[in-house]
């Protein structure tokens, strides 16, 4: 089930992406509505990270194209932010938490300009939002995994972009922080921003997202969360994997007694 929207923020057309000529994403065709929280869900190796990287044009597309805000990506880079998977960088780098969060201002500053006081204030504010203000001067190698994740989030927040791509931002984050962050993402949605989140937990997915993309090398579904998160479509996404199917069962039991107030 693939639902297309009018005036999308992201339009992916016939996208195929390969590593070493071996395609890992085939003919992806989807559109995402503005001002929404989008979950990208699928098993390990489904191509979730690949999809969001290709959406930002960080990987060459074998075929097809992506448009963001109805423009080619090169024209809207300063409105895009990205929270990479935590493992993608070397945390033994000589930098402090504050140094990393300040990188959020680099894109807008342009060449040769140094961060100003306003940028430093924005970085501090972003650290506050993720509850890390006390760690500003901490060396980044001395952080726990969850704290590293929050630093990456703070960097993206400091950027004040219009569209955010987040690759598993909740991996290793404790439940209190996860709740605080999802609150933050909801506020951003109220401000008309779009947040695209790669997510692994099926149970919280119904609660967090308005729009869900189910992926397993091919696009299984893209549409409003309550229409997409069905047993049938999840089985199609995860195949017949036993452990996953029990999870799906649990999820559906939950759905029979929906906890959602909205």
């Amino acid at each position: 089930m693939i639902i297309q929207v009018e005036n999308p923020v992201v339009e992916v057309h016939d996208l195929t992406v390969s590593y070493d000529r071996k395609p890992v994403l085939w003919g992806i065709d989807l559109t995402l509505p503005a001002g929404s929280l989008v979950g990208v869900i699928g098993p390990n190796g489904a191509g979730k990270s690949t999809l969001i990287k290709a959406m930002m044009d960080l990987l060459p597309a074998g075929s097809g194209y992506v448009r963001i805000f109805d423009k080619p990506i090169a024209e809207v880079r300063n409105r895009i932010s990205y929270v990479p998977q935590r493992e993608s960088v070397d945390w033994d780098f000589p930098a402090s938490v504050f140094d990393v969060v300040l990188m959020g201002s680099y894109g807008k500053l342009g060449l040769f300009k140094r961060p100003r006081q306003a940028d430093k204030d924005a970085a501090m504010e972003a650290l506050q939002k993720v509850g890390m203000q006390g760690f500003a001067n901490r060396q980044i190698s001395q952080l726990s995994g969850g704290q590293q994740q929050r630093v990456f989030l703070a960097r993206a927040l400091a950027q004040n972009a219009d569209i955010y791509f987040m690759d598993e931002p909740f991996a290793g984050v404790d439940i209190a922080t996860e709740t605080a962050i999802i609150e933050l993402l909801r506020t951003m949605r109220e401000q008309g921003k779009t947040v695209i989140v790669v997510h692994h937990d099926l149970q919280s997915a119904t609660e967090y997202f308005d729009w869900v993309v189910l992926l397993n090398m091919r696009l299984v579904a893209s549409g409003p969360a309550e229409q997409v998160l069905t047993q049938h479509l999840l089985e199609q996404t995860y195949g017949g994997k036993l452990t996953v199917l029990t999870k799906v069962g649990e999820l559906l039991r939950k759905q029979e007694f929906p906890a959602r107030e909205s």
């Binding site: 990205y82 990479p84 780098f93 930098a95 894109g107 060449l111 040769f112």
Partner: peptide, 21 residues
């Protein structure tokens, strides 16, 4: 002159590319 760009592209090239550096 290239201090911040060199710093960022050395630390996190994927993020740098995403935001247009």
């Amino acid at each position: 002159l290239g201090y911040k760009e060199l710093f960022l592209t050395t630390f996190d090239p994927a993020y740098a590319a995403a935001i247009g550096i």
